[in-house]
Simulated assay, not measured.
Amino acid sequence: MKGILLVNLGSPKSPTAKDVKPYLDEFLMDKRVIDMPYILRAFLVKGIILNTRPKKSAEAYQKIWWPEGSPLIVISQRQHKKVQEKVDIPVALAMRYGEPSIKTGIQELKNKGVKDILMIPLYPQFAMATTETIDVLAAEIIKKHFPDINLTSFPAFYKRKEYTEALAASIKGHLEGFDYDHILFSYHGVPERHIRKSDVTKSHCKMDGQCCSTASKAHEFCYRHQCLETTRQVTELLGIPQEKHSSSFQSRLGPDKWLQPPTDATVNGLAEKGIKKLAVVTPAFVADCLETLEEIGMEAHHEFLQRGGEEFRTIPCLNDDEMWIDAMVTWINEWKSK
């Protein structure tokens, strides 16, 4: 029997420092998130970050926490429920960090007689710290605990028409009645070295303004290219002129050089240049979370208004939008019929 495993990032159990700390420990100690040697990573995470950040992060989570729980978990559960209602094979939900774990999700499917699993990492663009870490951990779990299970991972879907059309339709709907001056596509940031490490050609990715638009095998695993390509495809579908949109990268950590330009500086700069009505969409996520609800919806919103902006609209992630659910159902049915 075939089955589906949907995998998202994860969340603390509660918006308290007590629960945020072990979540951050698991997340930041992942060598594909902070790709330092173990001793340096442990010193940074356990010796510095975990002594200061849990309280601050807990306060941020408290601002966006829903009565039902973590927004990311609640939305992922809704996605799971809707997908399951539209397909006739078992569907399980898992998180890379926290619960329910990937191992738990695979066990749930196995208990239902599933031998062949399609795992869908819920990230449109490939990145070391998202898709790759899910793929690697899942493969390790399969090898150690479920050697009789066949696991296939669904590749990055940033250019699949079902996704881009769903994203474009969602943006169009949420922009209705909003005569925006500019729309910013804000993607989660990663260190530039992650891009170079993911370059299968070992020579193409130079982040010089040209490599992402020059055809290459490297694009299959290039997060920056895939983000910019998402923007290009969606703005073409919506007919948004070049001068009315841009892309940026948010959520930096540490002193390393991260993808440019940063979202916070971009938002501030747009306001200072006279942009009065700004819309921001976050296409690296398919479920609203701390990065979209607090970092964009609250912090960036506040900073934009403080610098002279007048209206700021945060466009929600796809969440449980029906076109997005139908996109996943289409991919599942295509795989099931093979």
Rank of each mutant, 00 (worst) to 15 (best):
G269N: 10
M119N: 11
A169P: 06
S248R: 04
P155Q: 08
C289L: 02
M298Q: 14
E192F: 08
L137C: 04
A284T: 00
W258K: 11
E299N: 14
T131D: 01
I141V: 11
G269Q: 08
L24P: 06
Y61G: 00
D25Q: 12
S203N: 12
L278E: 01
S246C: 12
V267M: 08
K257W: 10
K257C: 03
T152W: 12
H225Y: 15
G177L: 06
V267S: 06
G239W: 01
T266L: 12
T231E: 11
A218P: 05
T131S: 13
E162A: 12
T214D: 00
F312S: 03
K172G: 00
F312Y: 11
I195F: 01
T292Q: 02
A42Y: 15
H80N: 11
P261K: 10
K55L: 14
E334W: 09
I332N: 02
T230Y: 01
L44C: 06
D321C: 09
D181P: 03
M29Y: 00
P241I: 05
E299G: 06
K63F: 03
M36C: 00
V267H: 06
K81G: 01
Q62D: 09
P283H: 06
H204E: 10
G113E: 02
G189L: 09
T131M: 08
T214W: 01
D326Y: 01
K338V: 10
K276R: 13
T16V: 06
I134K: 03
K82I: 10
